[in-house]
């Protein structure tokens, strides 16, 4: 699986909703023959669910860390790190990082639990830590934080 294939598929399917991509490669090993590849893809919120299902066409995506976030003025950037092509060829794993901008006055994003069931905990964590509402999440309860926290969201600036 080559990162360019994913970029080509994304730009042909998502057109204007696919805003940017960046590939970073680092040589590893004493002789520098192995490549560590990370691919960043910025997409619109409306096509996020579609984007994950496109990713799934290349193989089952594995969610790598819980969603990180960056805050700028009136948007919050939500970062979904997935890995692809694991357990296939040695040192062939590809990290695909989906970046989604969410406007601060409408903090919602669609759940992808139906595509990647293992993401449920990360989505629950995002809801309590960042106050972003995940739509259609099968289990909206709190995960880590005590109920006494109320409407405070610890990971927000």
């Amino acid at each position: 699986m080559h990162p360019d294939d994913i970029v080509a598929r994304f730009s042909s399917e998502l057109k204007g909703h696919f805003t940017a991509s960046r590939i970073q490669e680092t040589a590893e090993g004493l002789d520098g023959s192995k490549k560590r590849v990370r691919l960043w893809l910025s997409i619109d919120r409306d096509v996020f669910h579609r984007a994950v299902s496109l990713l799934k066409e290349f193989g089952p995506p594995h969610i790598c860390t819980p969603m990180a976030s960056k805050e700028y003025g009136d948007t919050i950037e939500l970062i979904y790190p997935f890995t692809m092509n694991y357990a296939a060829e040695p040192f062939g794993e590809l990290v695909v990082i989906l970046v989604v901008d969410i406007p601060r006055d409408d903090l919602r994003i669609r759940s992808v639990c139906d595509l990647v069931p293992g993401i449920l905990y990360m989505e629950r964590e995002t809801m309590e830590m960042l106050g972003i509402i995940i739509e259609d999440i099968p289990d909206p309860r709190r995960l880590f934080t005590p109920d006494s926290l109320g409407d405070t969201y610890p990971m927000r600036d």
């Binding site: 590893e28 090993g29 004493l30 002789d31 023959s33 192995k34 490549k35 560590r36 594995h62 969610i63 890995t83 694991y86 357990a87 040695p90 040192f91 062939g92 794993e93 990290v95 990647v116 069931p117 293992g118 993401i119």
Partner: peptide
């Protein structure tokens, strides 16, 4: 998205040391 020995015992040969080059493992 199981990982580690739990995944490998189910036949999913997923090991970050082999999948993702880092440290001395690529050698």
């Amino acid at each position: 998205c199981a990982v580690g020995p739990t995944a490998r015992a189910s036949g999913l040969a997923k090991d970050v040391r082999v999948d993702y080059p880092m440290l001395a493992y690529p050698d």
